[in-house]
């Protein structure tokens, strides 16, 4: 009888014991994000390139803690000169340029835990299209390895600075112009964190 009672009370208390035990020891449950990585979307304006006469607006999507992709377009004014910030992307051979554009794509790897405030490395690919008043179109493909820093200035404002080294490949080479050259790209962006 006594033994039966013990089993009964033991079984009754078991869930309570298990619950209290799991509550006090299972600290890992607070850190379990169930494979759900965070993701962020940031709209950025590269104000440093604006000094050259190029106005790139890009969108960056970050998935998880380490990987992100940034893409966007830039408007290139006829007064554009990439020599102002030492990029060495000399386009002086473009004759009488008109309003042109560029396309930016940049996969990134973040070294820190929080990509919104971390150093990163990435490959910057730029496709520049220069229209000349004569109707000639010059297309350049540029690829650079870049290293940069992203910082959160506030909950919604981010800042990015990068420098790198790369190469411009001649694509549409008309007449005897030869545009390939070594590049030193750099940029500074101010961003608005959507989420």
């Amino acid at each position: 009888m006594l033994f039966k009672n013990l089993i009964f009370w033991g079984l009754l208390a078991l869930p309570v014991l298990l619950l209290s035990q799991s509550d006090s020891t299972d600290i890992s449950s607070y850190f379990d994000e169930g494979g759900v990585d965070g993701h962020s979307l940031i709209i950025k304006y590269n104000y440093l390139n604006a000094a050259n006469g190029e106005f790139p607006v890009t969108v960056e999507y970050i998935r998880g803690n380490s990987l992100g992709i940034e893409a966007g377009v830039g408007l290139i004014l006829p007064s554009y000169s990439s020599n102002l910030i030492l990029e060495r992307a000399d386009e002086s051979e473009v004759v009488d340029p008109e309003l042109s554009y560029s396309i930016w794509v940049q996969p990134k790897y973040f070294f820190g835990d929080n990509p919104v405030a971390s150093t990163f490395a990435g490959i910057l690919y730029k496709h520049k299209v220069f229209n000349e008043s004569s109707g000639v179109t010059n297309r350049f493909n540029e690829a650079s390895a870049v290293f940069g820093l992203q910082a959160a200035l506030s909950g919604v404002i981010s800042y990015e600075f990068f420098v790198g080294a790369g190469y411009r490949f001649p694509n549409d080479v008309l007449s005897d112009k030869f545009f390939s050259r070594f590049l030193l790209p750099m940029g500074a962006k101010i961003g608005f964190v959507i989420f």
Binding site: D113, N114, V116, A117, S118, T119, L149, A151
Partner: peptide
């Protein structure tokens, strides 16, 4: 300072 947002 730039990684201050999240402690490491």
């Amino acid at each position: 300072p730039w990684s201050r947002k999240e402690a490491t």
